[in-house]
Design a binder for these strands. Structure first.
Lengths: 242, 242
DNA sequence: CACTTGAAGATTGTATACAATTAATGTATA
DNA sequence: TATACATTAATTGTATACAATCTTCAAGTG
């Protein structure tokens, strides 16, 4: 399950330079999960990963804990760490929380944003069209996230920005985990345009409504391959093991 | 600075039983920070703490990382971990985010709460009067937090509940860190009654307004002993060292 | 046959030793 | 005197060894 983590002794050494081993392990694991080299529910065995990455268990262990605190992994004491398997309910709940944060962000953005920031946002949204034209699907999600991050940044509330970053990372992983072919038959450009229009017009109510609508429809497109029983794994709670 | 962490060899061994060393260190450190045995801005030296707690550096290090992920500590790579010194701005931003989460929570609570849960909430609020009559100040904050947690629980959204728990813990620490005598000349009973009334009447708009008002006035009572320059320490950002 | 029981192996949790980095101190030099 | 540099001490980061715990699976028991 965890064999697909790349391993090229020399190159890895290079990548590792100027980074702590823990940071290195963290990045590798995170991208391995996001790119689904490690599938949902699979166990992260410390010794195996340490060997594959060419470092010791200590930084690997540390990296796994960090991934847990970010909600990408569940740790069961004395039993091991597993990539999350979110339930339908968890996904919906997460998007609901995300909506609360992001709709506040866009309201604040209307108050605080500078013209430069609005222009930058426009630019990122434009890039979305271009990416889809080129069918460069691997660039799609980063750019989509950049749109939401930009809005959070415009709120001029650092704490809010950090919280949005976290939950954005988590919720976009949900989409990835359950999308078997990175199909993306869901194109939110119209919704992004609505967001932008309301923001530019400084219409708070419309902006909030557009954000809530956008995130609600995002949730709907999560493809839950096999319905997971509701009590299967609960985020951050140490229950039974898969 | 970190000398006041208690150390009674035998008792500690007992407390430690049935818990991992890391959990033990985490709890000890957390309460030491909350009770201000370790003051804000002070450095957490791994070897010292390990000796004081009678365990090795490994679990101490791990516990510190956990505290960082919860926002009670800042870690500067290769330099050490420090108890947070939040700026006025950070505090206000945090309360603003908290308001977004909790006002959503109370709206959902109006939809979902059972009569039993409402009765339980009433009970916790009543206990507040009783605690203040007895002047049992050490019971005050836990009970106050219990009120907010109960409302979050009533939302029937586990993800939201966890996020509220986190930010509640963080923001109540802010109050503690800057309140030199645990004076508590601020009595939010009237505000809690407003929350309850709106909840019971199932009036969403009033409930949201009451929550926002309540948290806004809480912020105002944070006593920032010495104004910290705005760029002093930024939460979660690795900048210069105190 | 279902259900315990009990080693043996695998994996996590902790301690400790060593390496790398930073902070502190003292000395030389302009 | 102030500044730059070098040396030393202190602290963090990583590797490895050992201990505790869980999982597995086979043998025994009702």
């Amino acid at each position: 399950m965890t064999k697909n983590v790349e391993k090229h002794d020399k190159e890895q050494q290079k990548e590792k330079e100027n980074r702590s081993s823990e940071e290195f392990a963290y990045q590798k694991l995170k991208t391995a999960i996001r790119k689904r080299y490690i599938t949902r529910g699979s166990k992260l065995v410390e010794t195996t990963l340490a060997e594959e990455l060419g470092i010791s268990r200590t930084p690997v262990r540390s990296a796994i804990k960090r991934l847990e605190s970010e909600g990408l992994v569940n740790i069961f004491p004395n039993r091991g760490a597993f990539v999350i398997t979110p339930t339908r309910r968890e996904i919906e709940e997460t998007f609901q929380v995300r909506a609360a944060l992001e709709s506040m962000a866009i309201e604040l953005a209307i108050e605080k944003a500078s013209d430069e920031q609005i222009a930058e946002l426009r630019h990122i949204i434009n890039r979305e069209y271009e990416i889809l034209e080129r069918k460069a699907m691997n660039e799609y999600w980063p750019n989509n996230n950049a749109i939401h991050l930009k809005i959070a940044e415009m709120s001029d509330n650092r704490v809010l920005f950090l919280r949005v970053s976290e939950i954005l990372e988590q919720s976009s992983l949900y989409l990835v985990l359950y999308d078997p072919f990175s199909r993306l038959d869901y194109c939110p450009m119209a919704e992004h345009e609505k967001l932008f229009a309301a923001l530019k017009a400084k219409n708070k109510a419309a902006a909030r409504a557009a954000m809530e609508e956008h995130l609600k429809s995002s949730t709907a497109y999560v493809y839950v391959a096999e319905e997971v029983p509701e009590d299967y794994i609960s985020l951050h709670s140490k229950m039974e093991n898969p």
